[in-house]
Design a protein around this nucleic acid. Sequence first.
DNA 1: TGTGAAAAGGCGCAAAC
DNA 2: GTTTGCGCCTTTTCACA
Lengths: 158, 158
Amino acid sequence: MTDTLDTLDHIDRKILQLLQQDANLSATELADRVGLSQSPCWRRINRLQQAGYIRRKVALLDRQKLGLGIVVFVNIKLSSHGWNMLNEFEAAIVGFPEVMECWTMSGGMDYIIRVVTKDIESYEQFLRRRLLQLPHIQEAQSHITMTEVKNSTELPLG
Amino acid sequence: MTDTLDTLDHIDRKILQLLQQDANLSATELADRVGLSQSPCWRRINRLQQAGYIRRKVALLDRQKLGLGIVVFVNIKLSSHGWNMLNEFEAAIVGFPEVMECWTMSGGMDYIIRVVTKDIESYEQFLRRRLLQLPHIQEAQSHITMTEVKNSTELPLG
DNA sequence: TGTGAAAAGGCGCAAAC
DNA sequence: GTTTGCGCCTTTTCACA
């Protein structure tokens, strides 16, 4: 619980790597993929989980099959940069399920967000009725994506 | 198996919603969260999985704890747009573990990619020795992110 | 389709080595 | 780190409304 565990050997990394690809792998299966027996492997998994390296396990759904055809990147600039403005804006963004990502940027633009909706009409709805309703938005440039070449949750552990 | 299943009722959606948040939920647990008993719930899960709504289950790791401090969006423009160029470029991108996302864009820029590395030096390495080694890159604008406000894998099923 | 129960197997988990 | 083992829970199925 108070385990610092600030150093990972190559077996730990391999375990994490495999779990990034398939969270259903049991301790038993993982064990022989990394060349270990169950118990020590199970212990490592637990340590990794309790130390917070593994945040959660989730199901990834098929966006197209669910009828979510539109993905848009939006560059946003706020007109006012007070601490309260930023916090309010970010809280609102986190609350929008259509916004899957939001990052603050160094340089010109303040934020980049990625929005997912069913179609162009519903994107327009989101934009006008949700996003642009937020105060202090100076600029919001929408960049519609066409094809998803890669969209991974695997962090590079090389 | 040959089930088309092109219509999901609100229970299916709720199951998917819950699995998007926690892939470890058992059929039993899911059952009483959606107000059903185990068997029909289990059947729905199977249908959803076999119909491809659930693509995979993965572990999400802690980027910061793993020492991956740098996230950069790169806008890329190619100098030549032949079919072969695009395919070669995309194949290379998919092969780079540092690139977690890659989308083609409508409008000016051809691609946007999200790159994750350990630090600025390793990003520079990636840029010079990997990305800019690819042929036909006309322009690559790096936009370094500062803070991760939101980074979700949950598709909006509302 | 949803309900209830029930078999079988695997897995988490821990103890001893 | 290894091997062994117990008990639980999960998945999976079957008869029935």
